[in-house]
């Protein structure tokens, strides 16, 4: 079989050039796609700011951030974010109380005590919980938790910060458990064996050696769970009652930042002041989650480096 003799030098040379050209076109496309995430993230920040500009100019960022009243459709219109920010923080706080102990406890059990089959089961369960859409959690909360909270605490309405927070806590569990479990799993077995050989029990080993070694990963898991809780929209919108008043306790109705954007964006005039104010709320939200995510990622990166050595 003759492979090349039929071709002239020019033809083969031509192919080389064409191949090189194709290779560089592909390379350009791939680099562009690779950089796309930076572009999108920047674009999000830029466009939130662009749309928020009007409200910053007319109302003022300081006034919005420190205002204690949210009254966007009254006369005069009042755009104070504090009720929303405190609402978000209160709901997130309740969620934190749920997912930190339960999440870390479950991760420790799965990684330090559980049998292989249980690990598989919990993995599937966690994947399921992560895959259930937030609107479904919200709906279940409406159907089950709101009536329960109402009767259990003798309230006039079951739509409270507590209700939203409990559901958010459940929704953040998969994030916290899977990242903490990864961190615990990454701790070398040699450390465990060293501790066990010193006469420590498995719990002492977990408590004194494994968890401290994995602490940065667990911290990152908690941070990401926190980010998820603050950014969650549908469940809180459906469960917290959305009263835009600074709450004094968790049995009151609250209105979160996310819920406000979702509920009010449908009623505003595009380009109007209220529209722009909602983008300011979005900007605050983006800023908070950005810092949380950045912190979590830096911590995770440090942990990754640590065990690579």
């Amino acid at each position: 079989m003759k492979v090349t003799p039929t071709e002239t030098a020019g033809q083969r040379l031509g192919r080389t050039t064409r191949r090189r050209a194709a290779e560089s076109v592909v390379r350009v496309l791939i680099y562009a796609a690779g950089l796309l995430s930076i572009v999108i993230l920047l674009a999000i920040a830029v466009f939130l700011f662009v749309e928020a500009r009007r409200s910053i100019a007319e109302v003022g960022l300081g006034t919005m951030l420190t205002g204690t009243k949210w009254f966007p459709t009254g006369t005069p219109k009042i755009f104070g974010f504090l009720p929303l920010i405190i609402g978000s923080l209160m709901v997130t706080g309740v969620a934190l109380v749920v997912f930190v102990p339960v999440g870390i406890g479950a991760a420790v059990y799965i990684s330090e005590f559980s049998a292989g089959w249980l690990k598989e089961v919990t993995k599937t369960v966690i994947e399921f919980m992560a895959a259930v859409p937030s609107v479904v959690y919200g709906f279940l909360g409406v159907a089950v938790l709101i009536p329960w909270v109402k009767t259990a605490f003798g309230l006039t309405s079951g739509m409270t910060a507590l209700t939203g927070g409990l559901v958010l806590g459940v929704m953040s569990l998969p994030t916290v458990i899977s990242i903490s479990e990864d961190a615990l799993h990454a701790v070398p077995d040699a450390l465990r064996q060293g501790s066990l050989a010193l006469g420590n029990t498995r719990w002492q080993t977990a408590y004194k050696v494994v968890v401290p070694s994995a602490s940065s990963g667990i911290f990152a898991g908690v941070m990401l769970g926190l980010g998820r809780a603050i950014g969650e929209t549908m469940a809180v919108l459906m469960l917290t009652g959305n009263a835009a008043v600074i709450p004094t306790n968790i049995f009151e109705s609250v209105r979160t930042m996310t819920g406000t954007i979702a509920a009010e964006m449908g009623e505003v005039v595009f380009g109007g002041l209220h529209y722009s104010v909602l983008f300011s709320v979005g900007l605050v939200l983006f800023g908070i989650t950005f810092v949380i995510n950045l912190a979590a990622d830096l911590v995770l990166e440090r942990q990754r480096k640590r065990w690579r050595r």
């Binding site: 999000i44 998820r228 929209t233």
Partner: peptide
């Protein structure tokens, strides 16, 4: 970092964008 951060941006913020 951007990819990790994008994964944590609240979905309603994507909605605004």
């Amino acid at each position: 970092l951007s990819i990790a951060n994008m994964a944590g941006v609240p979905s309603i913020v994507y909605g605004l964008f």
